[in-house]
């Protein structure tokens, strides 16, 4: 009795009770909300297909045709699957600002919901690769070493050893992977956008795709034990740095030594 009374009179008692109450309310709300969201998801699929058709007619049909059958300006999208739509639109490559050799990455003009609607409509036309699930792109516990080996054999020849991209013929290029999300990387492997070959689950198993994504993220976010990385392009930027910063310092020192005696 004395013990609980002491607790009640403690200075921290009121804030603690408040925190506990807030957590309890939040948890309860989340539980109720998630139980309804499953129902809601089923409803949105129906509406999003129609919403997607509308969005497609507005933003995409001028090149891809009203029924995604393709025109002289753009390919048919029947059977490309939701993964291709999600990759192209979420990375801002589609819709293109102008016709060009290659669609560059830019800010996406669609919300996540709108992209989902577009993907749902295109996917409804014919079967194709689906958007990878959270499980597919979960890199926790992925084997970095295996990912590195797969990356060097399959990806580095175009995207460079650290995913910094590289030139292809005639102004085309393999983009750098600095801003690509895990989902986008997975989708790119699955659908082979632009000049990229398709790495289906048969040629590159899901486990390896996950490992590759983990390796790319390690290259991007890992520590730089050697100091400034000079863009991870290899000897060209190193040479440039030696001839600018390095020689600048050395020659300033030489001039200083040469002048001092006067």
């Amino acid at each position: 009795m004395r013990f609980t009374a002491a607790l009640r009179r403690n200075r921290l008692a009121a804030p603690l009770v408040m925190v506990a109450a807030l957590v309890a309310t939040g948890a309860a709300y989340a539980a109720i909300d998630s139980s309804t969201s499953a129902v809601q998801a089923a409803v949105t699929t129906e509406t999003s297909v129609t919403q997607g058709k509308m969005l497609f007619a507005e933003g995409c049909s001028s090149c891809h045709g009203l029924n995604a059958e393709g025109t002289t300006d753009g390919p048919s999208l029947i059977g490309v699957g939701a993964a291709a739509v999600d990759f192209q639109v979420s990375s801002g490559r589609m819709p293109m600002a102008t016709q060009g050799i290659q669609a560059p990455r830019k800010e996406s003009i669609y919300s996540e919901e709108e992209i989902a609607a577009l993907a749902a409509w295109v996917a409804s036309l014919a079967p194709g690769p689906a958007i990878p699930t959270d499980e597919d792109i979960n890199t926790a516990g992925a084997n970095l070493a295996e990912g590195g080996e797969a990356f060097r054999v399959n990806c580095a020849q175009c995207h460079n050893f650290a995913g910094q991209g590289g030139a292809l013929t005639g102004g085309k290029y393999a983009p750098n992977l600095n801003k690509a999300t895990a989902r986008q990387i997975y989708e790119a492997m699955l659908t082979g956008p632009q000049n990229m070959p398709i790495f289906s689950d048969e040629t590159l198993p899901k486990e390896q795709k996950r490992a590759i994504i983990a390796y790319i993220e390690e290259m991007r976010n890992g520590a730089n034990p050697g100091g400034l990385d000079l863009g991870k392009y290899g000897p060209v930027t190193e040479g440039l740095f030696a001839w600018t910063a390095g020689f600048l310092l050395l020659i300033v020192a030489a001039v200083w030594i040469g002048v001092k005696a006067k």
């Binding site: 054999v153 020849q157 030139a167 290259m219 034990p225 050697g226 100091g227 400034l228 190193e238």
Partner: peptide, 22 residues
């Protein structure tokens, strides 16, 4: 400043190559 980050290049295997090998 880093120079020649060999750990990023990986070991040499004849079937792999990096873009921009200079």
């Amino acid at each position: 400043v880093t120079i020649n980050p060999i750990w990023m290049f990986g070991p040499y295997v004849p079937n792999a190559v990096s873009a921009g090998s200079q």
